[in-house]
Write a protein that binds this DNA or RNA. Sequence first.
RNA 1: GCCGGGGUGGCGAAAUUGGUAGACGCAAGGGACUUAAAAUCCCUCGGAGGUUUCCUCCGUGCCGGUUCGAUUCCGGCCCUCGGCACCA
Length: 857
Amino acid sequence: MEERYDALKIEEKWQETWAREGTFEVSEDPDKEKYFMLEMFPYPSGKIHMGHVRNYSIGDVVARFKRMQGFNVLHPMGWDAFGLPAENAAIQNRSHPAKWTYENMDYMRTQLKKMGFSYDWSREIATCHPAYYRWEQLIFTRMFERGLVYKKTSSVNWCENCQTVLANEQVSAEGECWRCDEKVVDKSLDQWFFKITDYAEELLEFTDKLPGWPEKVLAMQRNWIGKSLGAEVEFTLEGSDEVIKVFTTRPDTLYGVTFMSLAPEHPMVKQLSSGTGREGAVNDFVERMKGIDKIARADDTKEKEGVFTGGYVINPVNGDRVPVYMANFVLMDYGTGAVMAVPAHDQRDFEFARKYDIPVKVVIQPEGERLDAESMEEAFTQAGLMVNSGSFDGMGSGDAKGVITAHLEEKKAGKGTVNYRLRDWGISRQRYWGTPVPIINCDSCGAVPVPEDQLPVALPENIDFDAKAISPLAAIESFVNTKCPECGGDARRETDTMDTFVESSWYYARYASPRHATAPVDKAKTDYWLPVDQYIGGVEHAVMHLLYSRFFHKVLRDMGMVSGDEPFKNLLTQGMVCMESNRCPEHGWLAPEEVEEGRCADCGSKVIVGRTEKMSKSKKNVVDPDHLISKYGADTARLFSLFAAPPEKDLEWNEAGVEGAYRFLGRVWRMVFDRLDQIGKAKPYTTGELGSDAKGLRRKTHQTIKKVTEDVGTRFHLNTAISAVMELVNAICQFDAKGEKDAGVMREAVETVVLLLTPFVPHMTEELWTLLGRKGMVSDAAWPGFDPDACVEDELTIAVQVNGKMRGTLTLPASSKDDEIKEAALEDSKVKKHTEGFEIKKVILVPKKLVNIVVGK
RNA sequence: GCCGGGGUGGCGAAAUUGGUAGACGCAAGGGACUUAAAAUCCCUCGGAGGUUUCCUCCGUGCCGGUUCGAUUCCGGCCCUCGGCACCA
């Protein structure tokens, strides 16, 4: 009896069975070790893409593997459902963002179910649901009470014509509004910020305590936090008590300061120039800098330029009169917006000084060399010996950093400080489709958080995107007008919504108790399930999402809602799914099906083949998972995306490779079918009664269990785990069972293949498991163990080298003693050819592996 | 400029602690089966050379070092991908 492998029929059947039986639904079980497997939840953009297929296939292998190993596995799924695309689609279709979002979620849920992922769908969450965001609003108000939320004036993109705030994505490269092409301008607005900088030090410190994270991601986060040690130094204004503070990492160069540079936005600029006759030039410069938009100013390796303000400050260590300039390269939002300039020892200051004829003063001399301020051509930025620095002369510049800082502290003219690049997190969005900021603005009480019993602040459903208002919510009077919770007087609701990164910063914790109705999380349940044991997602989230989540976890910890310091114990960042792109000179980018034999299917022009890069709709180098599933089935899609490359590397899409995966599944299917008769006759055996072939197959079976267990469980080498199973399948196909004992060995081998493949291709293995006459589901079966004795080879293959060069191999009984192996190697005819006429100086033996004979004259 | 990856056959890759480089798969070529095709099965497959059941030399980006032995460790360089950056 031969039956064809009908993937679609099998997959539908088992997906229904798993859903009916609630196979992957879990609850807390104190007797079982828990394992929380989480993949980054998707944005409901419309359809799943190959990146999702890959990400979720990797996660599903781990989840199913751990489940079979007996862990209580929490493997949830949900939707990062707020965001701008829904709003854009609604504007375009004259529809509602909720409609678009919920329809997309429905479609994508169906797609994910067709992939057979082992999710506990009873825990599904959607962040746009009031039952989710009400708790986010509660967390916001608690953060507000703790001083972790504040309001600050900050600029946004503003369209004068539409009278609305635009997201960066809604501003064209030319700086125009996406809807009306009006030139976009900066507008200052009061916006909400989370004080992530309060946690900068802890976030940095813990990058050294996350051994389960890739070094790459930790480095990016350290970089982002950007800690630098230095000193804050106060320079007093000449003829005034006022001071300008600067931040420097080089207090050792303080005696070499010959000017100061301020950011054009610095608040002291006006005061410095007034009455100096420089007001006009200063004003021109400030106005000109305002005109250059932020992107252009930061972008180019632009010429350093500046202008003298006319004012002077006094150097606190030596009383020098220091002229103050404005410079285009000084940033208002890093340090203090003011820089002490030491041209002799900073390249940028050096160029500036030469350009504007400002003196250069050497205060650090390299050892064995003499710098001359007049003739030097670039700044000397390394360590050396202090000169021209008063009592510090002769000291090493490294030591001087601390000593001068202490000296400043004594004189009350400065102190040692730490500076971070990390900025507070601006969360205000002047958009509709997001979590409303739960604040009521009252003229007499100020900003008042919405009391817990009035949450959620629900998004109003009637919305008019054409209304001219600072944000869509601001146009809805019934939403805006309310009473102050404190004084009961008339008040106005905050109309900003939160950045969607806020929702994704705590969703992992909500999965532990997704329907909890009295708090964001049920502490007992989060204590059981958290932290996430394995988190998987794209490396594009290395900084923002993963840093914000770490911040939130620490905040929730400090509020007593969760235990532990970090949310994600192990992190895997999977690579992108890439494909070649094709471009027709006439028709632009072509999808794979629009190309026929290197030519455009439409016009016959020769296509230009682009380099392989991330699949993207704009370049049409995409494969639709729906087509793949309907052509080959989900198991093939899963297998290929797991086999073609290791998880953390980019995967190059290759249709022939998909065919190969499909062929392998067909081969496994036939392997089982063709052997059902023989397997039915299998009898138990003892190892002693097996022939060498049977013993060999049994050995291969156990070696494969060992390899796959290690590859999946400890190394995430899913591609080599699959290739190990392929080897076992090849071995089974070559094995000729003679009699019932051999059939017993074969049965064990075949069942092992089915068990080991279950995390990868679960539908097919369920079907085969049933065919093999096993009761119950293979998804519920125990992961096979291996017998270490069965893995041991009877014969050793010893590599033989002469002077480190391979000269052949020896096959010897496993029981051979080291001396016997050495002797056999020396006797070997190929070896003799290379040792004759030489003196044998040394024989090196690596037990069970290799003999190296060292010879010389 | 700083930080972090990576560089191995025609291609995707493997080599877990310094010990037989190229497992597994794709592509390609040859063969079997078939009226034929598809499917399937079998064989070959890093390069060069030779006295061709086998042997020799070369080969993991480049140059050097350590070692009996280096894809693996060390030093220097090249290329490439990613992140950060007028960061004071």
